[in-house]
């Protein structure tokens, strides 16, 4: 399912003293199966953008296409449920949406709304628990008795259980400790690769964008500021700094090496281990052009 935004604008509370332009003339095309990171400051329009993806909001002008589902300002949303079944959104702090008595019931809540057969859900649950790294005996417990990290995983399972074709992640690791963050991000990457799934990650972390995404969209004041493959985007430090964003630390480090020692090591997604090795070798060779 491709995602196409065609000159999309969204204005909140138009014609009132509180009018606010959240999106302005936004156009892009996301290929089916890609992993896209959307980066921008709070208030740059990211949240509004993702709410267009499953018809939670409609554009004020322009057109949004998700596969063959078209959202325009004029037309009423028809069978929006068919769209929402295919587009799963993990909102910020998703544990706030838990409400059932048991973990199992909460996970099954979405499928029930979309009339997915109980047997299908029962079959999915064990592998799902494995994916989000929760033990099976958690199913009968109340979600409110769990730790914060576990609640987050249950909520994520409640979205993944629909097996969405498009998975939208709105800062899914906010508030977790470093270990939890890494586990969750790696998990989403596995889920992304499993099928031809499209993943859209809203994040502040340049490191995550660099590590996982194959396409980056930088938003600023409701507009698309830059767009392209991460390595291209992060070459232009100045452009990013201009809108108050940084480049990933690895690239900062390599840039500094370049300017101070004239050692040029291009970043190709090396691990720290590999990178350190290349740096050490460069120094030992005496790779400096005075």
């Amino acid at each position: 399912m491709d995602i196409i935004f065609n000159k999309v604008s969204h204005i909140y509370q138009p014609n009132t003293p509180f009018e606010f332009k959240a999106l302005e003339n936004v156009s892009f095309h996301i290929q089916s199966g890609s992993y896209v990171a959307i980066i921008g400051h709070t208030g740059s329009g990211k949240s509004t953008l993702i709410q267009h993806l499953n018809g939670l909001v409609k554009p004020t002008s322009g057109e949004v296409k998700i596969g063959d589902y078209v959202i325009t300002p004029e037309k009423k949303l028809k069978d929006v449920m068919t769209l929402r079944e295919k587009v799963g959104i993990v909102f910020q702090y998703p544990e706030h949406q838990l409400f059932e008595e048991t973990v199992e019931k909460d996970i099954s809540f979405g499928p029930q709304n979309f009339n997915i057969a109980q047997e299908v859900v029962q079959k999915r649950i064990p592998e799902l628990l494995k994916a989000v790294q929760l033990p099976e005996n958690i199913l009968q417990r109340s979600p409110f008795d769990l730790s914060g990290g576990q609640m987050r995983r249950v909520a994520i399972a409640g979205v993944l259980v629909m097996d969405p074709k498009i998975l939208v992640l709105d800062e899914p690791t906010a508030g977790l400790d470093p270990r939890g963050q890494k586990e969750i991000m790696d998990m989403f990457y596995r889920v992304h690769q499993e099928e031809e799934r499209t993943t859209i990650l809203v994040t502040h972390s340049m490191e995550d964008a660099l590590k996982y995404a194959d396409h980056v969209i930088i938003m600023d004041h409701g507009k698309v500021y830059m767009e392209g493959p991460p390595l291209e985007i992060f070459k232009d430090q100045e452009a990013l700094n201009n809108v108050g964003l940084d480049i990933p630390e690895v690239i900062q480090f390599l840039n500094k090496l370049e300017s101070k020692f004239h050692i040029s090591i291009p970043f190709r997604g090396q691990s720290v281990e590999q990178l350190g090795k290349e740096v050490a070798e460069a120094f030992k060779r005496g790779d400096k052009s005075e």
């Binding site: 709410q51 499953n54 079944e85 959104i89 909102f91 706030h96 979405g110 029930q112 709304n113």
Partner: peptide
Amino acid sequence: ETEKISKAQASRGVD
């Protein structure tokens, strides 16, 4: 908060 939760549940198929 209400808006946020209702959107999250709407995404899970609540009408």
